[in-house]
Computed example of a mutant assay.
Amino acid sequence: MNWTIPNILTVLRLAAAPGVAIMFLFFARPWADWFALVLFVVAAVTDWFDGYIAREFNQESRFGAMLDPIADKAMVVIALLVITGFQGMNPWILLPATIILFRETFVSGLREFLGAAAGTLKVTKLAKWKTTAQMVAIAILFATGVFQHEFLDRVEGLDDATVAAILAGEAEDTVGLNHWVRLEELTWWVGTLLLWVAAALTAITGWDYFTKARPHLRDAPRG
């Protein structure tokens, strides 16, 4: 393997995938949310840069072609596991996450089974949009966790009646509770909507790959 810049970025992105979950083992929230968000966004940005550099400077390689989709899938799968966990297994998050995880497992299995014929399952433009939607949705949902715990930090020591009065506009909001609540609600709705869009694109591209693979799945006629 040549240690070109695209390959180095891909390896770093693969290493960052478990790092997103590890943040929640070593740091308290919301710091864990902040670190996971920054790490995920930086890793996602390298996905664009390594592909661009590889194409523009003729540094494409078989190693990069193999590892790039693995790094993307590892990032998405681990991040979704973390998000479904801190969202309390919310069905609005769990269902699209399940669709995404099922498709990624299914297509990976198809590619492994097809072996040399796996070239028929080349990454399509729609699949790239699917990956982009997944990355953006996950980043926004990580931001939801940030805003949620920034809010919780500020209500610490306040009784429920005071918090309710502040949110209802009946008491002065000296600690910015309404600001964090609005940000949490906005990012949750936008992130969840994008996650459903990503799930829809995931299902469509998964079916497309299955359709392309079907000729290779038929048993040979018995003579």
Rank of each mutant, 00 (worst) to 15 (best):
A36F: 10
K128I: 08
F49A: 03
F24L: 08
K128S: 09
L39D: 03
A44G: 01
R103D: 10
W196Q: 01
L183D: 02
V20R: 02
I100C: 06
G19I: 10
A65H: 02
A118E: 14
F63A: 07
R154M: 07
F57D: 09
L9F: 12
A165V: 13
T187F: 03
W48L: 14
F147P: 03
K122A: 14
M23E: 09
R13N: 06
Q134G: 00
H216Y: 15
A213L: 05
E156L: 12
A54G: 09
V11H: 08
Q59T: 01
G51N: 05
V181Y: 07
K125Y: 13
A203T: 08
R111P: 11
A15Y: 10
E150V: 00
V163G: 07
Q134W: 02
T205G: 13
M1Y: 09
L67Q: 05
L141V: 12
G51T: 04
E172V: 14
R218I: 13
G223M: 11
E56I: 10
L95K: 01
W31A: 14
P69M: 00
A43P: 01
P96A: 15
L14M: 04
A127F: 09
A28W: 05
R62V: 13
W207A: 02
T187K: 01
G145A: 08
F49R: 09
E185T: 11
K128R: 15
A118C: 03
V190S: 03
F35C: 13
P91M: 13
G51Y: 04
I70E: 03
G145Y: 04
F24D: 00
T192K: 01
G115F: 09
A16F: 08
T205C: 12
V38F: 14
V77C: 02
L101S: 05
I70A: 13
E170V: 07
F113T: 15
S108L: 14
A164Q: 05
V77K: 05
K212I: 07
I8E: 04
H216S: 08
A161I: 05
T211Y: 13
A36H: 10
L80I: 02
A74W: 03
M23D: 08
F106W: 13
A200M: 11
Q148Y: 13
R218P: 04
V181N: 14
D208Y: 11
Q87W: 11
V181G: 06
E156K: 12
L39R: 07
L14F: 03
R13S: 15
A143F: 12
R214E: 00
A117L: 10
A220V: 06
A171Y: 09
A21R: 03
D208H: 14
P69H: 03
R62A: 15
Q59N: 01
K73D: 15
N178M: 04
W180P: 02
K130Y: 02
G176S: 06
L94Q: 02
G169M: 10
L177H: 11
K73T: 15
A139R: 10
T132W: 04
K130V: 01
F86H: 01
F63D: 01
A116V: 06
A21Y: 12
A165Y: 13
F35E: 06
K130F: 00
E150G: 02
P69K: 01
L194I: 12
V197Y: 06
H179N: 06
W34F: 12
W196F: 00
F57G: 05
W207H: 05
H216W: 13
V41T: 13
G176A: 05
A127Q: 02
W31I: 14
W129F: 15
